[in-house]
Nucleic acid binder design. Structure first.
Lengths: 213, 213
DNA sequence: CTCCCCGACTGATCTGGATCAATCTTAGAG
DNA sequence: CTCTAAGATTGATCCAGATCAGTCGGGGAG
């Protein structure tokens, strides 16, 4: 069995940095910032369990959630020598890290990460279409479909994000996201059991709104 | 020397597909669609020379240019088994293709593509911030800085894109892009020698507008 | 149980960029 | 050279979503 290092909530403040564990698994509480945009990029990381988000900030505080990550997704990337994004857990999460040098030494790792990068790059392409060309209602429909796998039919989706976080992901304001949820409910496409518990009732209409995504 | 297969303009219609050349180099004229979103994904491609753009379409015709590519950049990606984007040359270009299976067999190739994917993924993260949170003027400033490398000081940048293509890249309309160019000119940050020939006069102000990018 | 507080919702108003509608400019054709 | 057509610019108006301003609701502390 693989080693799992448990880190309790209290041992990480919201802005703590991750200790330099090599190859080990690391359990992190929800709402912890694991990486900071602009810090020196030493390691590449993978989500093993849980959900995370990558964010970028403008100098004046405007924020964009650039990517949502689930198990298998890779983060800690850098175009130059510093991290391009901050990374924050949405739920309790387990992550692994790899030395950047290991990419050349370990072909199996490189091959696996390559495949994952391809998936994530395609997801970013879709997201560019969402951010650049879709209306508010379409964006929220797209968001919900993306989070709700086909398989789950009657099930309810638990949102681990606030309206503000969803807004920062979709390039909207929290008020607009809230109105979009209400409008989808009014049209009978979704049901809101609680603010963070959504049920998709009319998948076809949702798909049509989201551009057959 | 590597083999270069020259393809003349006339031999490709705007919507022709690329013949199945393995590992060879292929010269393609400007404004040729090399890949079509939704086609079966057989090969992974690399830009050797020239500039290209990747686009995605919504069913109703809205278009997003999701990525701009230069030498070294990779395209022809697929999340499932079909291409996620169409790929079109902006200038005359030289491209290579690799069999998708070669990624496992050739660690050097995998390692090189991995590095490039990382760069492109970071570029997409920046672009998400641009599309989600920046004003029209900021977007255009960011776009021009990105295209104009630091080194070139007094030089002029030749835009290989129409206002419509720039608009589709930045999530705006062509009118708004045109107005942004005029505003940057009015403020003295750029000079427009011709519609497609730009000079950056005040790099610092541009950088401030673009969010210190 | 009540109280408190944070997040969600909703209404009223404002505005940046979209849309609609002419020109203007400039390669390229003849 | 002139003529033409495609792209760029500019102006007028409109509207989706931002902003501002409360109110609502539900889960945790006491």
């Amino acid at each position: 069995m693989r080693q799992i290092i448990e880190e309790r909530t209290g041992s990480y403040s919201r802005h703590a940095s991750v200790p330099d564990m090599h190859g080990a698994y690391l359990r992190v509480a929800a709402h912890v910032t694991v990486l900071h945009e602009g810090d020196t990029a030493r390691r590449i990381m993978e989500v093993v369990e849980g959900a995370m988000m990558l964010t970028k900030l403008l100098p004046d505080g405007r924020r964009q959630v650039v990517e949502l990550l689930g198990p298998g997704d890779v983060f800690g990337l850098a175009a130059c020598d510093v991290y391009a994004c901050s990374a924050e857990t949405l739920t309790t999460a387990v992550i692994t890290t790899h030395d950047r040098g290991a990419l050349d030494r370990d072909p199996a790792l490189a091959s696996r990460l390559l495949r994952r990068f391809e998936t994530q790059l395609c997801a970013m392409h879709s997201h560019a279409l969402v951010l650049g060309r879709m209306s508010a209602l379409e964006r929220v429909a797209f968001f919900l479909l993306r989070l709700m796998p086909e398989s789950v039919v009657g099930g309810t989706l638990h949102l681990a994000m606030t309206r503000q976080e969803i807004a920062d992901f979709l390039g909207l304001t929290l008020e607009t996201v809230s109105r979009a949820f209400s409008e989808l409910k009014r049209r009978g496409l979704v049901a809101l059991l609680r603010a963070d518990e959504v049920q998709i009732n009319d998948r076809n209409s949702m798909r049509r709104l989201a551009g057959a995504a």
